[in-house]
Every structure is written in C-alpha cells, then in structure tokens.
Deep mutational scan, measured.
Amino acid sequence: MDSLVVLVLCLSCLLLLSLWRQSSGRGKLPPGPTPLPVIGNILQIGIKDISKSLTNLSKVYGPVFTLYFGLKPIVVLHGYEAVKEALIDLGEEFSGRGIFPLAERANRGFGIVFSNGKKWKEIRRFSLMTLRNFGMGKRSIEDRVQEEARCLVEELRKTKASPCDPTFILGCAPCNVICSIIFHKRFDYKDQQFLNLMEKLNENIKILSSPWIQICNNFSPIIDYFPGTHNKLLKNVAFMKSYILEKVKEHQESMDMNNPQDFIDCFLMKMEKEKHNQPSEFTIESLENTAVDLFGAGTETTSTTLRYALLLLLKHPEVTAKVQEEIERVIGRNRSPCMQDRSHMPYTDAVVHEVQRYIDLLPTSLPHAVTCDIKFRNYLIPKGTTILISLTSVLHDNKEFPNPEMFDPHHFLDEGGNFKKSKYFMPFSAGKRICVGEALAGMELFLFLTSILQNFNLKSLVDPKNLDTTPVVNGFASVPPFYQLCFIPV
C-alpha cells in the first residue's frame, strides 16, 4: 500500500510540474494548442506526416506557434517570411542545433551535424575549407563525379535492359564520391566492405524516417530501456565508426604531411598542428563522427533524390523527352556531361530543381535551437528552445509555385524558357546551418541524371499514369515507394 501511495504522489508531482512548466512558459512563447500533461501535443500531431499537421496548425495559430513534445516546448516556423527572418536575418541567433537524443547517444555531441557552439563552428569551418581545397564546386571533385558517372552508366548497362530496382546502384554512385573525398578511394560496386557500408546507410535513412524515431526523440528514456529499431540505428553508426577508425589508422601509418590526399589526411594534419593548443576540438573521436556525418549527409540524401527523380521522369515521359532533346543538342553522344553545360541547359536545370522542390526530401529539416534569449515577432523565446522549420511550407508555397503539388519544371523557367532562380528554393535548409555539401549534391544530381539520360531511355513496367509517387515514409525524410524500371541503351 505504501508503495502505491508513493507512486501516486510521484505521478501527481510530475503532472503538477508539467502543468507549471507549460503555464509559466506560455506567456512568453508564441500561441499554440493546449498541451496535455506529460505528453504535450503529441496526440494532435500525425507522426506519419508531421508536415501536414504543421500546415493545419498554422492555419489556426499563424506562421509562428508553439507545440509541446512531452514536456519540451518547440517553436514552429511556417512559411517563407518566418523562416527567412529566423535563419537568414537572425542567422546567428537561430544557428543552434536542437535536442536530438538519439544523435546524442550516437555521437556524444561530436561531428558537424549535431554539434553546437565553438566545437560546431570550428569543425564546420575546417570541413568547408577542406572540401573547397579539394575542389568542391571546382574541377578536381567534378572529375571524381564524372568518373563515377561513367562507372554508374557501365553498371546500368550490365542490367541488359531487364527490369531492376535502382535503389542499390543509385546509392553506390554518391557513396563512392564521398569515399573518394574521405578515403581517396572508390570501391567496386561488388566489394563486400562497400556493400556493408551501403547497407547500413540505407537502413539508417529508413529507420530515421519512421514514426518510432519521432517518439524516441521526444521521450528519450525509451532509447535506453525499450527495444526497437533505434538500437539497430545505433549499432549501424557504431559499425561505421569502427570502419572509419580502421581507415584512420591506415592513414596514420602512411600519411605524407607534405601531400595530403583526402579529408582524413587533412584532419590528422590539423590534429598535429593543434596538439599544443589544448583542449582542441580536433580529436580522433571528432574525426570519426565528422566522417560519419559526411557519409550520412552525402550519400543517402543524394541517392534518395536520384531514385525519386527517375520515378518522376517515368511518370512524366514528356519531361524526359525534353531533357534528352536538350542533352542531344548541347552535349551530344561523344563526350561526358560537365558542369559548364548546365548554363546552356535551362530546361534540365529546371527539372533538377523541380525534383528537389517537389519531393521535399527533408520536410522539417533537422531541429534548430536559439543560442540566446531572443525577441522574435513580439515573442520571447528562451535560450536553448528547439525550433522546428517547415521546409515544406517554403518549397510548396502556392504563391511562389502555382499548383505546388504538381510536378512542373516551369516553376523554374521564365516566359522565355530561361532558368529562373527562386529564393524559396531551400531543399538544403538556409542560413548558417545550410548543408555543407550543397554544391557537391547539386553537381552530382546534374551529372548523374544527364549521364543516365544521355545513355538510356527509361521504360516503366506499368502505365506511367498508374505510377504512385507518394512517399512511403514522410517523417525525417521523404522516401519514394518501391518501383522497377528498364534502362534501355540509346
């Protein structure tokens, strides 16, 4: 009986604490739906499609509103004006990374994606500088992407125009580009180590996009005490870190300090320079996690976009025909596509942009946080508050993009057929937390897609009208449904 009384008292205290925290903070924060004790607004949000729920709530509470995930307040920004004001106009104040408990377990605050403060700034600055020195957006990395595009075309030829699921092959190409940047090595598509790495990356994007992960991140005790797919994700990350550590040891034994070959060499050189400046942010643990982040951000996002792009091109054969006509006119058949071609191919450029806009790969991006107490639109948001960005509300804005739910390359073309930029184009987020590999991803999408369409016609196994382009999961990332196609050599 005594234990029951204690339990009831504990629960009562928890409920009172929950109510007090919510009521004391709500006077400062933007308005929002009334949260339930302990669980907050979790029942009012469709976990399978958070973005749709945010759109519905914005119609009631406006472009800036507050939700509670458990006891934790989260300020939501919906629509271009609110997102721009926060991420661009007040970029420094909104540059923090929001709480992501599962990532905390995986990387302990290291790396480039989930770190904060001085650690994040130094690692991000170093990573950007190193990638630029190796030619991100310049010639040397373009050579690597072109080489991988040629290998991709050869792998597709091996399908002999038979029906195939493109998931694996389209994942190999961007993964190999990242391998060449980090390890100075590309792998054969049949290499077992490479296959294991690909498998872990593919599993992780599916797990991260599941409703279960949303629950884990908002009720963090689940991570330590409950079984579930989150444990598989943590094991996959541990596998990748151990693999990278092996490569780091190989580099330490063979590195030429006067001739760095890749990202690992550059990081080890930085560690050597910083060894007298303790404590340094440049450690082996930081290198492991930064490399894992580059793999995660640079492989599955690009391969998922490529997979979605081919599905949309199957669905819209008239678009595919126009792209192939432009390829034939500008590039021809006797040389590989290059980035200089893009400025002469406005329709193809528009298609690449429209694919990214339409699929809305990361509907709410990753959570941000404010780095200080900030007054925002007459609300006071306390330091450390998590900020949720609705990228969907920007990419699918119906004023900027008429009929935003329709796939239409003319969203990025003017009346004369010239490519038209849009400030609403934010597939990689915006501001200080914009994806480090934005330029690389854009290069890969253009070169891989043009190389495929230069060499193959795409054949659907069903009537294009019957192809479903609805994402199968739409949590962290929008993942396309399973499909097969035939690559018919031109």
Rank of each mutant, 00 (worst) to 15 (best):
residue 327 I to N: 02
residue 418 N to F: 07
residue 233 L to R: 02
residue 360 D to N: 15
residue 237 V to T: 13
residue 135 G to S: 10
residue 60 V to D: 12
residue 150 R to L: 09
residue 115 S to I: 08
residue 163 P to R: 04
residue 142 E to G: 03
residue 254 S to V: 13
residue 42 I to T: 10
residue 33 P to Q: 03
residue 324 Q to E: 05
residue 159 T to I: 04
residue 176 N to S: 02
residue 32 G to K: 02
residue 92 E to D: 14
residue 159 T to V: 03
residue 31 P to T: 06
residue 294 L to Y: 03
residue 448 F to C: 02
residue 186 R to C: 01
residue 110 F to E: 14
residue 401 F to C: 04
residue 278 Q to C: 12
residue 477 A to S: 10
residue 146 Q to P: 00
residue 111 G to M: 01
residue 54 L to P: 03
residue 94 F to T: 12
residue 277 N to M: 13
residue 97 R to I: 04
residue 109 G to Q: 06
residue 122 E to S: 12
residue 256 D to P: 10
residue 253 E to I: 15
residue 263 F to D: 00
residue 166 P to R: 01
residue 456 F to P: 01
residue 61 Y to R: 02
residue 86 A to D: 03
residue 426 M to S: 07
residue 7 L to D: 06
residue 56 N to K: 13
residue 1 M to I: 00
residue 393 S to T: 05
residue 12 S to T: 13
residue 339 M to H: 07
residue 332 G to S: 08
residue 58 S to F: 04
residue 333 R to V: 07
residue 44 Q to K: 11
residue 73 P to S: 03
residue 295 F to I: 15
residue 34 T to Q: 11
residue 476 F to G: 06
residue 120 W to V: 06
residue 168 F to C: 04
residue 233 L to F: 13
residue 65 F to M: 08
residue 22 Q to T: 14
residue 127 S to L: 09
residue 109 G to C: 06
residue 255 M to F: 13
residue 323 V to H: 01
residue 128 L to N: 09
residue 89 D to V: 09
residue 287 L to E: 00
residue 320 T to H: 12
residue 121 K to F: 06
residue 141 I to P: 03
residue 378 N to G: 14
residue 379 Y to P: 00
residue 340 Q to L: 12
residue 186 R to P: 01
residue 396 H to R: 12
residue 373 D to I: 01
residue 3 S to C: 13
residue 280 S to T: 11
residue 355 V to I: 13
residue 433 R to H: 10
residue 66 T to M: 04
residue 136 M to Y: 10
residue 69 F to S: 06
residue 230 H to D: 04
residue 252 Q to A: 10
residue 136 M to N: 11
residue 147 E to V: 08
residue 175 C to E: 01
residue 78 H to N: 13
residue 337 P to T: 07
residue 28 K to M: 12
residue 81 E to I: 06
residue 28 K to T: 13
residue 221 P to T: 11
residue 10 C to F: 14
residue 456 F to Y: 06
residue 136 M to W: 08
residue 244 I to S: 03
residue 215 I to E: 04
residue 26 R to K: 13
residue 301 T to Y: 00
residue 133 N to Y: 07
residue 411 H to S: 02
residue 319 V to A: 08
residue 253 E to S: 12
residue 109 G to R: 06
residue 327 I to L: 07
residue 142 E to S: 04
residue 107 N to P: 09
residue 411 H to R: 09
residue 182 I to M: 15
residue 154 E to V: 07
residue 107 N to M: 11
residue 160 K to V: 04
residue 214 Q to W: 13
residue 246 E to P: 03
residue 197 L to M: 08
residue 163 P to M: 05
residue 456 F to L: 01
residue 140 S to A: 11
residue 371 T to V: 08
residue 190 K to Q: 11
residue 447 L to H: 04
residue 257 M to S: 13
residue 173 A to Q: 00
residue 108 R to Q: 15
residue 324 Q to L: 03
residue 463 D to M: 04
residue 185 K to N: 08
residue 256 D to A: 08
residue 227 P to S: 10
residue 455 N to K: 08
residue 411 H to P: 00
residue 294 L to H: 02
residue 116 N to G: 09
residue 159 T to M: 09
residue 46 G to W: 07
residue 362 L to C: 04
residue 208 L to N: 14
residue 331 I to C: 11
residue 390 S to N: 15
residue 206 K to S: 09
residue 453 L to G: 01
residue 260 P to G: 08
residue 52 K to C: 09
residue 399 K to E: 13
residue 361 L to P: 02
residue 153 V to S: 01
residue 227 P to R: 08
residue 86 A to M: 07
residue 95 S to N: 10
residue 437 G to C: 03
residue 197 L to H: 02
residue 216 C to R: 15
residue 230 H to Q: 11
residue 212 W to I: 10
residue 79 G to Q: 05
residue 314 L to T: 07
residue 339 M to G: 05
residue 388 L to T: 03
residue 362 L to Y: 03
residue 142 E to T: 03
residue 408 D to M: 03
residue 147 E to Y: 06
residue 369 A to L: 14
residue 194 F to H: 02
residue 218 N to Y: 15
residue 394 V to R: 00
residue 342 R to M: 09
residue 33 P to K: 02
residue 488 I to F: 05
residue 5 V to T: 12
residue 43 L to R: 07
residue 63 P to I: 03
residue 168 F to S: 07
residue 336 S to V: 13
residue 248 V to P: 03
residue 232 K to P: 03
residue 314 L to M: 10
residue 276 H to T: 11
residue 204 N to V: 09
residue 252 Q to R: 14
residue 208 L to M: 15
residue 489 P to L: 00
residue 426 M to V: 13
residue 121 K to I: 07
residue 177 V to C: 04
residue 221 P to R: 13
residue 254 S to M: 12
residue 409 P to M: 02
residue 363 P to Y: 02
residue 175 C to T: 12
residue 320 T to K: 11
residue 466 N to T: 13
residue 126 F to C: 07
residue 110 F to R: 11
residue 31 P to M: 06
residue 118 K to N: 10
residue 346 P to F: 03
residue 209 S to F: 08
residue 192 Q to N: 09
residue 315 K to G: 03
residue 5 V to M: 14
residue 235 K to R: 13
residue 189 Y to G: 02
residue 299 T to S: 07
residue 8 V to H: 07
residue 173 A to R: 01
residue 277 N to A: 10
residue 269 M to S: 12
residue 437 G to P: 00
residue 68 Y to L: 02
residue 355 V to E: 01
residue 144 R to H: 07
residue 387 I to W: 03
residue 448 F to V: 01
residue 87 L to K: 04
residue 278 Q to P: 13
residue 136 M to A: 10
residue 220 S to Q: 13
residue 373 D to S: 05
residue 289 N to R: 11
residue 307 R to V: 03
residue 256 D to Y: 07
residue 403 N to I: 06
residue 330 V to F: 08
residue 331 I to S: 05
residue 104 E to P: 07
residue 208 L to H: 08
residue 48 K to G: 11
residue 445 L to M: 09
residue 482 F to A: 15
residue 284 I to Q: 07
residue 230 H to A: 11
residue 18 S to K: 08
residue 81 E to M: 07
residue 23 S to T: 13
residue 86 A to G: 12
residue 341 D to T: 02
residue 418 N to V: 07
residue 199 E to S: 11
residue 440 L to Y: 02
residue 111 G to Y: 01
residue 84 K to N: 07
residue 276 H to M: 14
residue 413 L to Q: 03
residue 186 R to A: 02
residue 119 K to E: 15
residue 76 V to K: 00
residue 30 P to G: 02
residue 183 F to E: 02
residue 61 Y to K: 02
residue 338 C to N: 10
residue 81 E to V: 07
residue 389 I to Q: 04
residue 464 P to H: 07
residue 215 I to N: 05
residue 243 Y to V: 15
residue 288 E to I: 15
residue 359 I to R: 04
residue 195 L to G: 06
residue 20 W to V: 13
residue 60 V to M: 11
residue 253 E to C: 09
residue 447 L to N: 02
residue 295 F to L: 15
residue 394 V to C: 13
residue 303 S to C: 05
residue 55 T to I: 13
residue 71 L to P: 15
residue 93 E to R: 05
residue 287 L to W: 02
residue 9 L to G: 13
residue 132 R to Y: 04
residue 390 S to R: 11
residue 27 G to F: 13
residue 337 P to I: 09
residue 464 P to C: 05
residue 9 L to R: 10
residue 74 I to S: 03
residue 168 F to A: 06
residue 131 L to N: 05
residue 395 L to I: 09
residue 134 F to R: 12
residue 85 E to T: 08
residue 447 L to F: 05
residue 156 L to Y: 00
residue 111 G to L: 00
residue 271 M to T: 07
residue 122 E to G: 11
residue 384 G to C: 03
residue 470 T to L: 07
residue 223 I to E: 09
residue 425 F to E: 06
residue 8 V to N: 06
residue 374 I to S: 06
residue 344 H to D: 15
residue 273 K to Y: 08
residue 346 P to T: 07
residue 27 G to T: 12
residue 93 E to S: 10
residue 376 F to K: 02
residue 28 K to P: 10
residue 238 A to G: 09
residue 11 L to C: 15
residue 168 F to T: 08
residue 76 V to T: 04
residue 435 C to L: 00
residue 139 R to H: 11
residue 184 H to L: 06
residue 424 Y to T: 09
residue 247 K to A: 10
residue 406 M to E: 13
residue 425 F to T: 06
residue 348 T to L: 06
residue 23 S to Y: 14
residue 129 M to I: 11
residue 29 L to P: 03
residue 355 V to F: 06
residue 340 Q to P: 08
residue 431 G to S: 06
residue 319 V to H: 11
residue 294 L to G: 01
residue 22 Q to K: 15
residue 31 P to I: 06
residue 26 R to E: 15
residue 386 T to P: 09
residue 346 P to G: 06
residue 488 I to G: 02
residue 242 S to Y: 05
residue 431 G to V: 01
residue 372 C to A: 14
residue 422 S to A: 08
residue 465 K to V: 13
residue 401 F to Q: 03
residue 169 I to R: 01
residue 408 D to Q: 04
residue 50 I to K: 09
residue 431 G to A: 05
residue 327 I to E: 02
residue 464 P to V: 10
residue 218 N to P: 12
residue 140 S to L: 09
residue 453 L to M: 07
residue 469 T to V: 13
residue 325 E to I: 10
residue 84 K to S: 09
residue 480 P to V: 08
residue 150 R to A: 12
residue 152 L to R: 00
residue 490 V to P: 04
residue 10 C to Y: 07
residue 277 N to F: 08
residue 100 F to P: 15
residue 383 K to V: 05
residue 148 E to M: 00
residue 362 L to K: 05
residue 21 R to E: 12
residue 103 A to S: 15
residue 376 F to Y: 14
residue 161 A to Y: 03
residue 224 D to P: 11
residue 64 V to M: 09
residue 188 D to V: 03
residue 72 K to C: 08
residue 349 D to T: 15
residue 216 C to M: 15
residue 125 R to L: 05
residue 161 A to Q: 12
residue 270 K to N: 09
residue 311 L to H: 01
residue 344 H to I: 12
residue 46 G to F: 10
residue 487 F to H: 00
residue 475 G to Y: 06
residue 138 K to P: 12
residue 219 F to G: 07
residue 262 D to P: 04
residue 342 R to T: 06
residue 299 T to C: 05
residue 239 F to V: 09
residue 303 S to A: 11
residue 193 Q to P: 07
residue 53 S to M: 07
residue 111 G to K: 00
residue 17 L to P: 13
residue 258 N to V: 07
residue 154 E to P: 00
residue 49 D to I: 03
residue 290 T to M: 10
residue 162 S to R: 15
residue 214 Q to A: 14
residue 433 R to V: 00
residue 430 A to Q: 11
residue 129 M to E: 12
residue 46 G to E: 08
residue 305 T to S: 11
residue 458 L to I: 13
residue 405 E to Y: 11
residue 484 Q to E: 14
residue 409 P to S: 02
residue 402 P to H: 11
residue 413 L to A: 03
residue 156 L to G: 00
residue 10 C to Q: 07
residue 79 G to R: 03
residue 23 S to M: 14
